[in-house]
Simulated scan of single mutants.
Amino acid sequence: MSRAVVFDEFGGPEVLHVVEEPVVEPGPGEVRVRIEAFAVNPLDLMMRSGTSPAPVPLPHARLGIEGTGVVEALGEGTTGLETGDPVIIAAIPDANARGSYAEHTTLPASQLIPRPAGLTVPEAAAIWVSFSTAYGALVEKAGMRPGDHVLITAASSGVGRAAIQVARHLGAVPLAVTRTSARTDELLAAGAEAVVATDREDVAEAVRAHTGGTGADLVLDLVRGPGQQELLRATRPGGTLLAAGFLDPRPTPSPEGTDVTVIGYRGFEHTLDPVVVGRMAAFLDAGVRLGTLRPALDEVFSFDHVAEAHRRVEKGLHGGKKVVVTV
C-alpha cells in the first residue's frame, strides 16, 4: 500500500487528508516513482478550493504538479531510465488522479527528466514548475535574446524569481516589478538589474529611465488585470508582452491602439512536448551545474503536515519562495 493526500470536498486546507491506496504497477512506457518530496503551487490551492480553471472531479481527488523521487519500477518497453534513477516530474496534466502529493505515482516516462546533480531533494522538488514556466515563456515563446531588457512582474514570486535567473543566465537584463519597496534589496540580491516598486514610482517612467528612454523589449506579466495597461506603456514599440499568470482576478482590458505584441502563455503548451522538455532539461542541468539557476526555498514540511504547508502559502507567509513537503 502507498499513502496519498486526497480531498473529497472543496474547501480550506482542512479538507486534505491522507489515505492508503494500492501501489499502481506501471503499464507499457510508464514508470513508477517513489516520491521523495513535492512543492506546493498556487494551482494546488485552486484545485483544493474549487477555483481552478479546469474542473476537478470529486471525491478522492489528488493534488501535486511537481516533485522529485526515484524510479522504482519500469513498465514494458520503457527505455532511457533505470530502476534507482533520481528524477524530476516534468508534467502531471491529470494531477487529480496521479498527483505528486503521495508516496508513489505512476507516469509516462516522457513526463520525467533526470534530476540534475548538485540539487538537494527539496530544491529538486521545487525547481521544475517555476523554471520551466519562465524558460518556456521567455525563450521558447518569446525568443528572448542577450541584451534584451526584460520586465518581470510579481518578481518575488516563484516564477518571477526564476525568470530573473533565466534572463541573467542568457545575458538579458532583468528589471523586477514589485508592489512594495521593501522587496528591493532582496530582488537585487536575486539578480535583478533594477527594481521598480509600484508603491513609490510610475512603472512606465521608471522603465524608460532604466532603458535609456526606449522601454522594455519584453514583458513577462504574471499578474494581468487592469495593471497590464501600464505595462504596455512601459514596453518599447514593437516589443512583446507575455501574459503568463492570473494573480489579479479582475478583468484584463483588451489591448487597443498599441504596437506591442501581446501573447498568452500556459506551461502545458511545452511541458507535454518531449522535444521542448528535452531542451528545458538541458538548460536546467547547465544552469544548476554553473550555479546560475537555483530555486528559492521557504519552509520544508513533513508529509503529515501538508495542511500546514497549504496554510502557509495561502496566508502569503512564504514570501514567494517555494514551500516543500518531504515524503
Rank of each mutant, 00 (worst) to 15 (best):
R115F: 07
P116Y: 13
I89Q: 07
L58H: 01
G84L: 15
I127H: 00
V87G: 09
G75V: 12
E76M: 02
R62M: 00
A91Y: 06
V121C: 01
E36T: 03
E36S: 13
D44V: 03
P53K: 05
A61P: 06
E66V: 13
V70S: 10
V31H: 10
A95T: 04
R115T: 04
H17T: 07
A117D: 13
T51S: 15
T79L: 11
E82S: 05
S132Q: 10
E103I: 06
L107Y: 13
V87P: 06
R34S: 08
P59N: 06
E82D: 05
S52A: 15
P59D: 13
G77I: 13
P26W: 15
G29K: 08
G69P: 04
L43C: 15
P108M: 09
P55R: 15
V56M: 06
H17M: 09
E30N: 15
G118Y: 05
E21G: 00
A124D: 00
V121W: 00
T79H: 08
E25F: 15
S49W: 03
P93Q: 04
V40F: 05
R98P: 04
E103L: 08
R48V: 03
D94Y: 09
V121P: 01
I35E: 01
D44G: 10
D85R: 06
V24K: 11
V121G: 00
A134V: 04
R115E: 14
H60S: 11
S110K: 11
P122K: 05
N96Q: 09
P108K: 13
S100Q: 01
S52I: 07
Y101P: 04
G84D: 14
G99P: 04
T106R: 07
E123T: 09
F131I: 09
V129T: 14
V56C: 13
E82L: 10
V18R: 04
P93D: 03
D94T: 09
E25D: 08
A61D: 10
E82W: 11
P53H: 03
R115Q: 14
T106E: 04
N96E: 07
S130R: 05
V87E: 13
I88Q: 02
T78M: 05
T105I: 02
V24H: 15
V19E: 07
G99R: 06
I65G: 08
L107I: 14
A126Q: 11
A126F: 03
G80I: 10
L112C: 07
A73N: 06
S52G: 15
E25G: 15
V129N: 05
G118D: 07
R62V: 03
T133L: 10
G84V: 13
G69E: 07
E20V: 04
V70L: 01
R32S: 11
V87I: 14
T78G: 08
S110P: 02
A91E: 05
G50V: 01
H17Y: 11
G64N: 01
R115L: 11
V40A: 08
L43M: 15
G69Q: 13
E82Q: 04
